[in-house]
Design a protein around this nucleic acid. Structure first.
Lengths: 129, 129
DNA sequence: ATTCTTCGATTACGTCTGTAGCCGAAACGA
DNA sequence: TCGTTTCGGCTACAGACGTAATCGAAGAAT
């Protein structure tokens, strides 16, 4: 009954997510390389990135492989899985599990561009077959 | 430096959100009444609910009005605003601000029911005019 | 008036999160 | 071989969060 854990399931925090994005973009890479990417956007220092990386390793969502004296990191979960999980969680929590109200909400708050609409229409048409 | 917050914006936590849901459903109500609702679902005790309420008051998202010797609480922000904000935040963080990929994601992870599809189609048709 | 009951307010405390410093071992340069 | 640089690993610490007990004042009951 609890929502606890599927295979990969340890919760990923906001800051950790930023690190994951970098890893999804390119991997495997070293801590320093991760910092190159992420320290540009969020104003972090190397130690911070290393802490986040080790927490992610602990949570078993990031794996390591030795590369000479250093380590290379790579994600152990697919971005699509993470993103899907977060999306479903939001729909669950805020819209009683129904996606339509989310859509309505986005529409109302003008978060939908003309392009979005067209794209969604296309997707719908495709799913209809 | 610490994290920023603007007028409406103090972050509402998961547990606090549960309390907000109760207040949105019925208000103004007393702490005890909030507990009646929320302690049924989450297994909390009165002190917990009161703590959450006072934190929400501090964050200025819940207001109080004296009712004899006790207080009645009511939300100061609309549910639609909160929900809209959270939705936009998710779309921003996970989909680069584009809603279409969210939709695709939900579709792929089978989070869309037949009803959802129909409803969304209807909404789309309506927006098309 | 004295006690019993209610509340809100204050305090507590372990965990998680954001952010970072320090240390020791390994690799490198001389 | 010896110091210097480079890493990963452990340690730290403040603020947020989840959860709750305790205190003190205002009312109610007798």
């Amino acid at each position: 009954m609890a929502k606890r854990k599927n295979a990969p399931g340890e919760r990923i925090s906001e800051a950790e997510h930023a690190v994951m994005e970098v890893l999804w973009d390119k991997n495997p890479i070293s801590a320093a390389e991760v910092c190159d990417q992420v320290c540009a956007q969020r104003d972090w220092s190397i130690p911070t990135v290393k802490t986040l990386l080790s927490r992610l390793v602990q949570k078993e969502v990031v794996g390591t492989e030795p590369d000479g004296r250093k380590f290379l990191y790579r994600p152990l979960i697919a971005r699509a899985d993470y993103v899907g999980g977060e999306s479903r969680r939001l729909v669950e929590r805020l819209f009683g599990g129904r996606a339509a109200p989310l859509f309505a909400q986005l529409a109302e708050s003008e978060a939908l561009t003309e392009d979005d609409l067209a794209e969604i229409e296309a997707l719908l048409r495709e799913m209809r077959k």
